[in-house]
Simulated assay, not measured.
Amino acid sequence: MMSNSGKHQQHTSDKPFLILKEHQYAYTAVSELFHAIESPDPQLVYLYGPSGCGKTALISDLLTDFVEIHAEAALKIVTASEFAAKFAAASNRNRIPEFQRTFRELDLLILEDIQSLENRTQTQRELLSVLDEILKSEGRVVISSTKPPGELARFDKKLVNRFHGGICVAISPLKYQSRLELLTFWANLEQIPIQKKELSLIAHKKELSPRELYAMLMQLQTVSRINQQRIDTSFVKQYLEGNIEGPKTSVAKITKAVCREFKTSLAEIRSANRSQQIVLPRQCAMFLSRELTDESLAKIANYFNRKNHSTVIHACRHIQHGLEKSPGLRQQISRIKQQLGVYLL
């Protein structure tokens, strides 16, 4: 999600962002924060909404403008979990002053998924100090969350007050008309031969987030190509009802897709390496292999050179628990499924 480029760490957006009715207030708030030449008032924007509603894409779309306007600005984009991990690592290595300089001297801090800091008292206190220093120096802050500030459990009251001191903007789930507009936009962008009537059938899936709608549209295209069928009303209805089989995959294909997402090698992921950088992608590969293939636990374990299939069971439980807690992990799993052309309703 992040890459270093000089003084900047930028999101990379793989597709253009369409400003929908549900995004307009949030888009305006972040735009004014980023476009202000002098220190804006307020200096903090807090965006909240369900996972996949477009918070990250919205920020990414406007970040390019900020970099062009404020070419010398120091900025950093991190998830709250990454912030906590960096703080813990600095504490263990007695490098707290270095950590503090890294964050407190920023002109722009974008901190995603703040709800993951619930019940992390020390990290919250450090974040409060970071925010106070950035705001005191006329810097800017964007916070994203799945919850409004008042619903953050076990959070320092002073930190919550800082959030309330900025602009708090909700991004609501898309209504039918916006879902249809978004699907039409993506179908044109990806040159998918599908008519408005068929897109309307998909748009009625109101429980799906924008990210999930995109994944569904792309898989529909893949399935139509595999089955050599036009994407007409009958085909879309059968697909939505689960009567058309999606693309096949395998443990090997899944593992390669996981390696691309986590930027690791096939040899490492199948090795005995137990470092966290390898364990997490390995567990993701095991989890997806169990979910997307008919292979037995024993065969999946064997592919990863594990003697006992209980390792796979543990991996599946660990990732399932992580998906319930971490929007970042859900995004990674979603991107891997998109690579594979797989989307499960």
Score class of each variant (00 low, 15 high):
H8K: 12
H11C: 10
P16H: 11
L18K: 13
L18G: 03
L20S: 12
T28Q: 15
A29Q: 10
I37P: 00
P40D: 09
D41F: 07
L44R: 03
P50E: 14
T56K: 06
L58I: 00
L63G: 04
V67D: 00
E68M: 11
A71P: 01
E82Q: 15
A89C: 03
F99D: 06
R101E: 15
R104F: 09
L106P: 01
L106A: 07
Q115G: 00
S144K: 08
T146F: 01
A153Q: 15
G166T: 11
V169Y: 06
Y176R: 06
Q177P: 02
S178M: 14
W186D: 05
I192W: 01
I194E: 03
K196F: 03
K196L: 15
H204S: 11
M218W: 02
S224D: 08
I226V: 11
Q228D: 14
I231C: 03
F235N: 02
E245Y: 10
V251D: 05
T255W: 11
T255H: 03
K256I: 14
R260A: 11
E261C: 02
K263L: 06
R274K: 12
L280I: 02
L288S: 05
R290W: 09
L292F: 12
S296W: 07
A301S: 06
I313A: 01
L323I: 00
E324G: 04
E324P: 00
I333S: 04
S334T: 10
R335T: 12
Q338A: 07
